[in-house]
């Protein structure tokens, strides 16, 4: 089933999680329908195999369901929590096969191309998403690569240093600089700030 169109539930992500913690199956179904395209999409982008991606996506959503009672909003948005679980499972799965499943830039392009433009509830989100996409594209290539390798492929700075054949300090600097620029770009009034992309030195 494709995502979201069959059942509409206006409750927030947090409210659905709270209901799932009380074994509310309807809430769980609404949550799954809200997130399955993103969870499956991320898993598939990382493992590059539909059958394995479904296995990863199912396990991720089962874990979200099981861990719903201990979700801590202070650690980030629900979407980030769900996608971090998905990413970690996908990375674990793919590490058994290859070191890096796809080019980081391909994943960024795939993410930008696969967004569904409508529902009204996501209008504001889609604006910010465009800004983030622009922010990523404007980053120096080596910083974008480090950030995507860490965010989407779960690599630590040490692993990136090995993968990119660069010193550990450089890997850390690239990740930090890229993350700060994404943050600055979205925080700037009116969206992107050209100043956010100056000074691409990565030590």
């Amino acid at each position: 089933m494709s995502g979201g169109e069959a059942v509409s539930d206006s409750r927030s992500d947090e409210a659905l999680l709270a209901a799932m913690a009380l074994d509310d199956e309807a809430a769980a179904l609404a949550f799954v329908r809200r997130y399955q395209r993103r969870v499956f999409g991320m898993a598939k982008a990382i493992v590059n195999n539909s059958a394995l991606a479904e296995e990863v996506a199912q396990e991720a959503l089962i874990r979200v369901w099981r861990h719903a009672p201990v979700y801590d909003a202070r650690r980030g948005a629900v979407a980030t929590w769900v996608l971090t679980i998905t990413r970690n499972l996908a990375v674990d799965a793919v590490r058994l096969q290859r070191s890096i499943p796809a080019e980081p830039d391909e994943l960024v392009a795939l993410g930008l191309a696969s967004r569904e433009p409508d529902p009204a509830v996501r209008a504001e989100e889609s604006v910010t998403t465009r800004e983030i996409g622009s922010a990523l594209r404007e980053l120096p290539a080596e910083q974008r690569r480090a950030l995507v390798l860490s965010a989407y492929y779960g690599l630590t700075a040490s692993e990136i240093a090995v993968h990119e054949s660069i010193p550990l300090g450089t890997a850390k600097t690239r990740i930090r600089a890229a993350l700060q620029k994404v943050r600055a770009a979205v925080a700037a009034p009116g969206g992107l700030s050209p100043a956010a992309f100056t000074g691409g030195s990565d030590g």
Partner: peptide, 29 residues
């Protein structure tokens, strides 16, 4: 920084899962 990561994850690609995904998920649960 966590907020910036939240934003970054909005770019995660989307894709329709195979038919029967929900049914298999509920059985698995």
């Amino acid at each position: 920084m966590v907020r910036a990561t939240d934003l970054l994850f909005r770019l995660a690609p989307e894709a329709d899962p195979p038919p029967g995904f929900e049914v298999r998920l509920l059985e698995r649960h």
